[in-house]
Simulated assay, not measured.
Amino acid sequence: MEASCRKKEDDGFHVLHKVPSGDGPYVKAKHTQLVEKDPEGAIVWFWKAINGGDRVDSALKDMAVVMKQLDRTEEAIEAIKSFRCLCSKHAQRSLDNLLIDLYKKCGRFDEQIVLLKQKLRMIYKGEAFNGKSTKTARSHGKKFQVSVQQETSKILGNLGWAYMQKSNFMAAEVVYKKAQMIDPDANKACNLGICLIKQARYKDAQLILIDIVSGRIPGAEDTKACVRAHELLTELETWRQPPLGPPENVPGLDLDDDFVNGLENLINEWAPYKSKRLPIFEEIEKYRDQLAC
C-alpha cells in the first residue's frame, strides 16, 4: 500500500512539472531545468545524455532551446550541427526549425535563407507533412491543425523577413507577394508595404497600408499590425528618400533553376482563379529585363 501511494505521488509530481520518469541523465536534465530552475546545470546533464545515448533526439533539441534562452546561440548552432547525426530521421525537421530560429536570432541570415528555401522545396515536392495536406501543431499547450498552404505562407514570410534584414527589399517584395497570394495576412502585408517604401514606391505602399487599416486584409484585427500600418501611413509623407538602386542580383531566388517554376505551379494549384500567370513572376521577368539593359 505504501509503495502504491508513493508511486502515485511520483506520477503526480512528473505530470505537474512535466518531467519524464526515470533516473537517467536526460531525466536529471529535465528535473534540473524545470524543477530546480537551473538552466546551466541542465545543459551539463543534457550533454551527458547526448554522450551517453540517452534520448538523444529530445536531449539535443531541449539543450539548444535552453542555450538560446541563455544567449548561447552560436554554441547551440554548433551543437546541433555536430550531433544531429546521432538523431533519428524523424527529428531532423524539428532540428532544422530550431536552426532557422537560431540563425535568425544571431543574424546569420544567409544560412537562414538556405534552410527556408530547402523547406519550400520539400513542400512543392510533396515531401512535407509526410505527404498529407495538414499537420497537428502545438502552441501554448494547445493543439491545432496547420495546412500546407498556411505553412508555405509562413515560411515565405520568414524568408521575406530575412531578405529585409539583408536590405534586399526587391527580393523581399517578391517573396511577400507570393505569401499573400497563398494565405494573406496583415503582418506580412505590413512588411510588404515597408519593402515598397524602401524602394520609394510610395503610392503602392500606401494602397496596401490603407487595405490593412480598412480591414480588407485578413488578420487586420491584429492590433500590432494595424497600429504599425497607421504609423507608416502617418510617416509616409516624410519618407521621401531617393529610391535604392537595384542590387546586382537577387541572392537566393534561384531564378535559373526549378525553384521558381515549382513554386509557381504549386501556388497556381491553390489559387487557380487569381491569375493565369502570377504577377510576382511578371515582376521577376521585369527585374531580369532591367538587369539585362
Rank of each mutant, 00 (worst) to 15 (best):
M1V: 14
C5T: 15
K8A: 15
D11G: 00
G12P: 03
V15P: 00
L16T: 12
L16D: 05
L16C: 09
P20I: 05
P20F: 02
D23K: 02
P25E: 09
Y26D: 07
V27D: 05
K30S: 13
K30V: 15
H31L: 11
G41C: 08
K48C: 08
A49Y: 03
I50G: 01
G53A: 12
G53L: 14
R55D: 12
V56M: 04
V56D: 00
A59Q: 05
A59W: 03
D62C: 07
A64G: 14
V65D: 07
V66H: 03
V66Q: 09
K68S: 15
K68N: 14
Q69Y: 04
D71F: 03
R72Q: 12
R72W: 03
A76V: 10
A76Q: 06
E78D: 14
I80R: 00
K81M: 15
K81T: 15
F83C: 08
F83G: 02
L86A: 09
S88T: 11
H90A: 15
A91Y: 06
Q92R: 08
Q92V: 13
Q92L: 15
R93N: 07
L102C: 08
L102N: 03
G107N: 07
E111F: 07
L115M: 08
L115A: 01
L115K: 00
L116P: 01
K119P: 03
M122C: 08
I123V: 14
G126D: 01
A128H: 05
A128C: 09
K132I: 08
T136K: 09
H140Y: 13
F144D: 08
S147K: 11
V148D: 02
T152K: 05
I155L: 06
L156K: 02
L159C: 07
A162W: 00
Y163S: 01
Y163F: 13
S167N: 04
V175T: 06
Y176E: 02
Y176L: 10
Y176V: 07
Q180N: 11
I182V: 07
D183T: 13
D183C: 14
D185F: 04
A189D: 04
C190H: 05
C190D: 06
L192P: 02
C195Y: 05
L196M: 15
L196G: 06
I197N: 02
I197T: 04
A200D: 09
A200Q: 10
R201L: 15
Y202R: 14
D204E: 15
A205Q: 05
Q206E: 13
I212P: 00
V213D: 02
G215P: 01
R216C: 11
P218F: 02
G219S: 07
G219F: 05
T223R: 13
A225S: 13
V227R: 12
R228T: 12
H230S: 10
E231F: 06
L232C: 10
T234M: 14
T234A: 12
Q241C: 08
L244G: 06
P246Y: 07
E248Y: 11
G252A: 09
L255E: 06
L255A: 06
D256Y: 11
F259V: 05
G262Q: 01
N265Q: 13
N268P: 01
E269C: 14
A271D: 00
P272L: 06
L278N: 04
L278M: 09
E283R: 13
E283S: 13
